[in-house]
Design a protein around this nucleic acid. Structure first.
Length: 485
RNA sequence: GCGGGUGUAGUGUAGGGGUUAUCACAGGAGCUUCCCAAGCUCUUGACCCGGGUUCAAAUCCCGGCACCCGCACCA
């Protein structure tokens, strides 16, 4: 088993995530977060959210169900599609690839135009009735609720971003008509993927954290990046380099200050939540792979075993023009007497993929075969487990009493008195709990407890009273003993 | 969506036309246990779903669903 497979096995067994609706055979592309997964995922989004709050972003929350007018303007209804055919005689709908292959051709197409040209020049027949097919259409990748809106269809949003764009004027007013402006949204997105695969990597319902940074198109400026951390850059043309973004901007590898700034910020957030910087790279998307709305995008990819998986995309896009045209509403801001329709730099975080990558990067197996999740303290589902060394001589009641108190200081704790102490340590290692607080016979004498750290298995002794006032991961003794480096 | 493979307790597995369906780990109860999955006793728990063949299907056949690999797709 590779690391990914071992992580999936562990995740199912210990309650991080599992296939949704499994008692009815499951449904491809849908997963449940289990009890530990919810805690850990919320810890990740907390880091993300607070990081952007520090950057003066404002947060909103908009509906997941969206009228067709929005996606007509954004271009999703036209471009967010796969190629298909509909037989003019029997009206059977088929994937274009299937039909073409059934007629003995081996070919794939990039556009309707290209497909139609091929269908004119070659005889391709309907697999059901044998009628010749001459027209290709598109298979929509958005979930649609036909006719349920006030003016037509409703759709489940394929990205959270449009909810921000359509609110641009209200938001700009809230932001006191200043530029640049950053607006963020955390929420569900939906795509009717043709082949969902690999647990949390390709879901049909997923969580996105998107930030729309509205900037002056002339400058595309946000703030000065620190330039203190080298990141792995794979530019569209030229060599891959490890370089800080200030240098990259100077060398023309980064197209704008804002792009450079958010590349650096993203690297910082991802490493903080537990992604290994050595297994992280920024790849500038080749022109022919760009999404319909973007003219420059850096994909942020994490290495899972031998595959690079996109966890974040940072896109330079300009949706406001489309909405301005379609709605008739002005999307400009008056800055220094100049009317500006902003460009958008959009860092879009795939929360589920980040979550999975953190697990894979945290996973390791000890020499004795026991599995450990080396999660950052703030990301682990539980900060600490409270354990009596043995269930007698008052250790159990003392530990239980401490557990009841510490919960009020830090609710991310768990109590366990079943099995041997070694077994309990192993259990906690496997779910990434950084600290185990054990009550032994000395605890009953002087009120001190042992604190065992997950990765080193080393222990220190501290007064249980101190922990009640400082909390666990905030305790200075614990920090300096185990997290100094 | 195509082709190939797979589907047995929470997890990993053995087997396979008539069985009390194997084993391990995990889980529960108890005894024991003063620091890293110790030991003992007891114990909960499974043949993906539907149809067919058959006296009899978890086992064979067909269909569905899910997962894995490859191809395609990933706005």
């Amino acid at each position: 088993m590779n690391t990914y497979e071992q992580v999936v096995e562990l995740a199912k067994r210990r309650g991080f995530f599992w296939q949704a609706f499994s008692i009815y055979g499951g449904e491809a592309g849908f997963y449940d977060y289990g009890p530990l997964g919810v805690l850990m995922r919320d810890n990740i989004t907390k880091v993300w959210k607070e990081s952007y709050l520090r950057d003066e972003a404002v947060f909103i929350d908009t509906p997941v169900i969206v009228p067709s007018t929005v996606f007509r303007a954004s271009g999703h209804i036209d471009k967010f599609a796969d190629l298909a055919t509909e037989c003019s005689k029997c009206h059977n709908k088929q994937k274009l690839d299937t039909v073409v292959k059934a007629s003995g051709f081996q070919k794939t197409f990039r556009s309707v135009e290209e497909a139609n040209r091929f269908l004119q020049e070659n005889v391709v027949k309907c697999v059901v009735c044998g009628n010749r097919i001459t027209q290709a259409t598109e298979f929509k990748l958005m979930f649609r609720m036909p006719g349920q809106g006030s003016s037509g269809d409703l759709y489940l949003r394929p990205e959270t971003a449009q909810g921000i764009f359509v609110n641009f004027k209200l938001l700009s007013n809230f932001y006191r008509n200043k530029l640049p402006m950053a607006v963020a949204q955390l929420g569900k997105g939906f795509r009717n993927e043709i082949s969902p695969r690999q647990t949390l990597i390709r879901l049909r319902e997923f969580t996105q954290g998107e930030i729309e940074v509205f900037v002056d198109p002339e400058r595309k400026y946000w703030k000065e990046p620190a330039g203190s951390m080298p990141v792995n850059l794979n530019p569209r043309s030229g060599e891959s380099v490890s370089m800080d973004v200030v240098t990259a901007l100077k060398n023309g590898i980064m197209s704008s200050n804002a792009m450079a700034y958010f590349v650096e910020k993203t690297a910082s957030i991802l490493t903080e939540v537990g992604i290994d910087s050595a297994r992280l790279r920024f790849r500038q998307v080749p022109t022919d792979e760009l999404a319909h709305y973007s003219f420059d995008t850096w994909d942020v990819e994490a290495l899972l075993d031998d595959d690079w998986v996109e966890v974040v995309g940072i896109a330079d896009r300009n949706d406001l023009k489309n909405h301005e045209k379609a709605s008739g509403e002005s999307m400009s801001v008056l800055v220094d007497g100049k009317s500006i329709t902003p460009s958008i730099i959009e860092p879009s975080y795939g929360i589920d993929r980040i979550f999975l990558s953190v697990l894979v990067h945290a996973f390791y197996v000890r020499d004795n075969g026991f599995k450990v999740l080396r999660l950052p303290d703030e990301i682990a589902p539980y900060h600490a487990a409270i354990l009596p060394l043995v269930n007698k001589d008052g250790m159990d009641s003392m530990a239980r009493d401490f557990y009841e108190r510490i919960k009020r200081v830090d609710p991310y704790v768990v109590y366990d008195q079943s099995g041997s102490i070694g077994r309990r340590y192993a259990r906690q290692d496997e779910i990434g709990t950084p600290y185990c607080i054990t009550f032994d016979s000395q605890s009953t004498q002087d009120g001190t407890v042992t604190v065992r750290e997950r990765d080193s298995a080393r222990q220190i002794r501290v007064a249980s009273q101190d922990l009640l006032s400082t909390g666990i991961i905030g305790n200075e003794k614990i920090r300096s003993a185990f997290r100094s480096s």
